[in-house]
Amino acid sequence: MASTTLQEHEVAHHFDDLEQEFESQKFGMWLFMASEIMMFGALLVGGLFLLYLHPDAFAESRPHLDWRLGALNTFFLLTGGFTMARAAGFAQQREQGKVRTNLILSLLLACGFLVVKTIEYKAKFHHGLLPGHAFHGEGFTSLHAHIFFGYYFVATGLHALHVLIGMGLMIWCLKVSKRVQFTRDYYTPVEFAGMYWALVDLVWVFLFPLLYLVG
């Protein structure tokens, strides 16, 4: 539990009070998430465009993705979102120890996601389901199956990069928890890491059906 050396949070010099500080940071966080969603959203628009352009390639390639692994990853991400929200709740209650437990749980779930992703990527490499000229999958009648897999790697790769950033934020929260006492007035790092993780979930909830289920 809380050690004796934990500090209380101090409001930064250029803010008048805690309210101004927190509300500004929260607003900034929302703006950042909005810009992230614009980025992924544009990527999804590109995906829908390709689906329209080459429906045959999508229909033929989609069964090569294993929806069971996708579903397992959906479970990992949603559970991670749940534990992150719990971490923020415990931070409000000054339960430094439980905050850490939940952060570590989320970290493990994120690792699980990446492990499954690696298994999927390995299978794609094994079967030659690769982008562009590297594509040498067998039994495809459509000429453009490589576009589906190109898009698959770009979209899931970018998403996986965000998973890594989210894990970085969790580790950062763990570090902060050893230095600063979280209180009802100051739990911002955990709250924001949780919001970021919810964004990772949100993107996945669109990517999963687009790639694994529709096509």
Binding site: D17, L18, E19, F82, A85, R86, R184
Partner: peptide, 19 residues
């Protein structure tokens, strides 16, 4: 600084709703 000011940042998490 901010004491005496009954501002609370964010909302209080409710574990039941979360579940």
């Amino acid at each position: 600084m901010e004491h005496g000011h009954d501002y609370q940042p964010g909302h209080t998490y409710n574990f039941q709703i979360l579940g």
